[in-house]
């Protein structure tokens, strides 16, 4: 059964199905009830499932995650919405010191099936703190898993898989892509939650991206084919932690070149981890150093110049060009 819908609508439908499947699933967050969330991802869910299951919380992120942990200890499966990426930090302590470590600290007795949804990334012309890419903080925390969807199909299925998972999941939603449409096969998921996915085959250079940058990578591949006939192979990482790099290694062994794209600042980011692993695994196959196209090591800039900060098609193609200069 294929349906066309936006990423936002796919998340909404996926959450709805998760709530239908398991009465222990709760949604909690600021403005998610009557308003349906500032991005309307939870639209109409409170109307249909009631205020007990779709909870407008007090304005307190530490409270949202902290009480979600308590609810999980009591047998519920909370799905928390953090309104914007820049507002997850009041909850950082609960996420990093409590949520991430409970399973280990309880000697493996207590799993916390909590999902934390975070609309992330820039490109929507917002004011400060509304365009951040904080995924590396969470990927750096053992005990958490971090995923990001890039298509409506993945949005629909990955949110359900995240809810069903016994791990705490940081679910990064590409907010600038909420309105993009695509096909959703509502009958089967195709992939497990923590698998990367080869989106487009190519022979000349591998481009790896996740979340909002997958679209940029695909566009770059299209442009490269038209411009100079270069065939780029595009891999959607989907899972930022744990990384599923086998398909990346296979691809790099074939192309000999790798460009990694993300919005987050360069230093200490996921791309450094990938580059290191690939250098180790594919050392003899590499024709060029691994290139990274990322945000810069600066505070996210004012909206009027955010396009200069965000990786775009030109910057990806420039990096691809540079892999051919070695």
């Amino acid at each position: 059964m294929a349906e066309t819908m936006t990423i936002g609508k796919a998340l909404n439908s996926g959450l709805r199905r998760a709530m239908e499947d398991d009465s222990k699933v709760l949604l909690m967050g600021e403005d998610i009830g009557k308003l349906g969330g500032v991005f309307r991802i939870t639209d109409a869910l409170q109307k249909d499932f009631g205020e007990d299951r779709v909870i407008d919380t007090p304005l307190a992120e530490s409270g949202i995650v902290g009480t979600a942990i308590g609810l999980a200890l009591r047998g519920y499966r909370p799905v928390c919405e953090i309104q914007f990426d820049g507002f997850v930090f009041p909850a950082f302590d609960q996420i990093v010191t409590q949520l991430a470590k409970m399973f280990a600290r309880s000697g493996g007795r207590v799993a916390l099936p909590v999902v934390i949804r975070i609309p992330f990334g820039g490109g929507i012309g917002a004011v400060e703190h509304h365009s951040e890419s904080p995924e590396a903080y969470f990927a750096h925390t053992p005990g958490l898993k971090v995923v990001s969807c890039a298509t409506p199909h993945d949005a629909y299925w990955m949110i359900q898989q995240a809810v069903a998972s016994d791990d705490p999941i940081i679910f990064m939603e590409p907010k600038r892509r909420y309105w993009e449409k695509g096909e959703v096969d509502t009958s089967r998921s195709l992939l497990p939650l923590h698998a990367s996915h080869l989106l487009r085959e190519g022979t000349d250079c591998t481009v790896v991206a996740y979340g909002p940058m997958v679209r940029v990578a695909v566009d770059a591949a299209t442009a490269a084919a038209e411009d100079n006939g270069r065939q780029l192979e595009v891999i959607d990482l989907r899972s930022v932690s744990p990384l599923d790099l086998k398909p990346v290694y296979e691809s790099v062994r074939k192309t000999g070149r790798l460009v990694i794209v993300h919005e987050a600042p360069l230093t200490g980011s996921i791309s450094g981890e990938i580059a290191s692993k690939v250098a180790g695994e594919c050392f003899y196959s590499l024709e060029a150093p691994v290139m990274r196209v990322t945000g810069f090591d600066v505070p996210y800039p004012p909206a009027r110049i955010e396009e200069e900060y965000l990786p775009d098609l030109d910057r990806v193609l420039d990096a691809v060009d540079r892999t051919f200069t070695f």
Partner: peptide
């Protein structure tokens, strides 16, 4: 590197150099 990348566009030189943090 940022400046050089943008200068590459302005001058339309083929030599448009680097774009990212240079962590090669």
């Amino acid at each position: 590197q940022f400046a050089a990348y943008h200068a590459g566009f302005e001058a339309s030189t083929v030599e448009a150099s680097t774009v990212e943090g240079g962590d090669h």
